[in-house]
Simulated scan of single mutants.
Amino acid sequence: MHIDNFFATSNSAVSDADYVIFGIPYDATQSFKPGSRFAPNAIREASWNLESYSVYFDYNLDFARIADAGNVNCDGNFEEVSERVSKLFEEINGIPIALGGEHSISYMVARNLEDFVYVVFDAHLDLREGFDSNPYNHACTTRRVMEIADEVIIAGARSATKEEREFAENSGIEVHYSWDLLEYGFDDLLDTLESKDRIYLSLDMDVFDPAFAPGVSTPEPIGIHPYDFLRVLDEIGDRIIAFDVVEVIPDVNKVTQTLAAKMVNEFIASNASLRF
């Protein structure tokens, strides 16, 4: 099997692409298992094991214009890396697809967007004002993004401080906890998302139960099933203006990075099949 150092479905120049994949291998604030800096390349490698045809969406990715812009240089501090991400955005005309890196890279992407709803699938609320004296710690990502987003919706959460939970309730953030999704299904979430346009969809791989995604920075039991994420893509795929996959710690059996690569393919298939 041929394996190269770019995403397997890449077939276009960045300036011409409808979808631009790029890595942000930044993991300076990870607080449990480190190593998501290696995830973008591991996800790329895993992508070569996957078919370019989505059976679920009945779409062949060969017909989508997809570019891989490589990795952003992550030397330096958070602001310096963020500036490089913004510089890359000047070249992107299609939908950006960011491969983390830790979850704080979502803010690096979000600051280049306007008029969007931030929909984040995450085991954690990530609503701390600061952590380790750093307002841009991965545990603060949703708190920072909500400062620039029109609205925030969190799905699959099952871990937080009491203060974070109260902040979400007092701030009007809609949270769909994993146990509610597991017991009652996704219809309430899908009903909420039905009216949302211009969605920035962020997928923290720890939203899935560790049985499906063991290679994540902060694994949390009682997670959701990957199939349910496909159902969500089927409903909102054509309204997504940016997508990211974060918090993968490449595992020796390549389970988690393969699931991440699969979700990138399925997102593109969902978007392209509904838009074109």
Rank of each mutant, 00 (worst) to 15 (best):
D18G: 14
V20H: 01
I21V: 15
I24C: 08
Y26S: 09
Y26I: 04
Y26W: 15
A28S: 13
T29E: 12
T29D: 15
Q30E: 15
Q30P: 00
F32K: 12
K33N: 13
P34S: 14
G35P: 03
G35C: 05
S36F: 03
F38E: 11
P40H: 04
I43C: 04
E45M: 12
E45P: 00
A46Q: 03
N49R: 07
E51W: 00
E51N: 12
S54N: 08
S54P: 01
S54M: 10
V55I: 15
Y56I: 10
F57I: 07
F57M: 10
N60T: 09
D62T: 04
F63G: 10
D68F: 01
D68Q: 02
G70E: 09
V72E: 11
D75A: 08
G76S: 01
N77S: 13
F78L: 09
E80A: 11
I92A: 09
I92V: 15
N93I: 05
I95F: 03
I95K: 07
P96A: 04
I97C: 04
L99T: 05
G100L: 05
G100E: 05
G101Q: 08
E102A: 09
H103G: 02
S106R: 03
Y107C: 08
V109I: 12
V109Y: 00
R111T: 11
R111L: 14
N112H: 02
D115K: 12
D115I: 04
V119F: 04
V120P: 02
F121Q: 09
R128Q: 14
